[in-house]
Design a protein around this nucleic acid. Sequence first.
DNA 1: TTATCTTTTCAGCGGATACTGAACTCGATC
DNA 2: GATCGAGTTCAGTATCCGCTGAAAAGATAA
Lengths: 165, 165
Amino acid sequence: MSEEYVQRTERPAMQEWIEQMAAHFEASEGMPLIAGRILAFLLICDPPERTAAELSYALAASTGSISTNVRLLMRLGVISKSTRQGREAALYKVEEDRWPVLVRQRMERVTDLEELTASGLRMFSGQGERARRLRTVHEFYKWLAGEMPELWRRWEREGKPQLRF
Amino acid sequence: MSEEYVQRTERPAMQEWIEQMAAHFEASEGMPLIAGRILAFLLICDPPERTAAELSYALAASTGSISTNVRLLMRLGVISKSTRQGREAALYKVEEDRWPVLVRQRMERVTDLEELTASGLRMFSGQGERARRLRTVHEFYKWLAGEMPELWRRWEREGKPQLRF
DNA sequence: TTATCTTTTCAGCGGATACTGAACTCGATC
DNA sequence: GATCGAGTTCAGTATCCGCTGAAAAGATAA
């Protein structure tokens, strides 16, 4: 734990950017602030691989928090750990290619409602006003859920940057 | 506050369905449980319009909670209030047609990250490893944000159930 | 084994927030 | 004006959860 650890987060602008990223993930994914900070930091730090102790120092977070949140992010698949022989600490780095998968999963959680509305229709409906409201909502989710596979196919085919030479 | 209020939520199956809906909105939108319950109940209750007192009774929630959450849902535009002359209480009903708008807004909040990653690229990058990771993520969000308008146009044109005669 | 460094676990603290219940405001009727 | 019901506000409570710090566990080298 010495000077070579790089100043806390280099420049204030970088700190601020990291805080904004973390705030976004907290608000929009319910992710703990520290997890968001780790993610943001690993996206832009140089060199790209960092030990838990370095993260702890750079982000001013306890070792316990780093441990917890690093495992959360690994479970999501968005960072990875590489171990080294000897006493050396493991290195973490961001797996930026996994990002689309995460967003995809997040979006598909929304369309989970398709099932619930379907079961509701089975239970309460038949026809009539009662079913009408529920069916309106259900048909939207059904449509949206149907669009998802194509959307992600397009990402694979067209969106995803191809290898360029 | 008498018997004609309809039993708390008619049948246990209905209660359970409402709880599942509420749980979904809590987990996936961060919505208070009571707000989710109101929304679910108004989707399937018969008759479709209810007073605050009726909601309070049917969902076993305090008048204060109903007041707070009904206003939250109105702000989102997903329920509406109709007032009546005299001492009669206002009636609330679900605006099921607004549902797609809500989901859309939710999804577009995700693509807000496009701006943040763009500003990050401007600050830290140029070229090099550092920028590479960030650019990968940025390009995904850029692509996704670009897909959204078409997606919702398709909903308007093809998905949305047309008037049928 | 002992020593050293890394990582996880966990009790406890602090902050945030959903919910209640009661007081209060507002409107309408008499 | 006085009264009554509907609706809002708010202080207080309970609960949840992120975070810390310290202790325990794990891993490697001497």
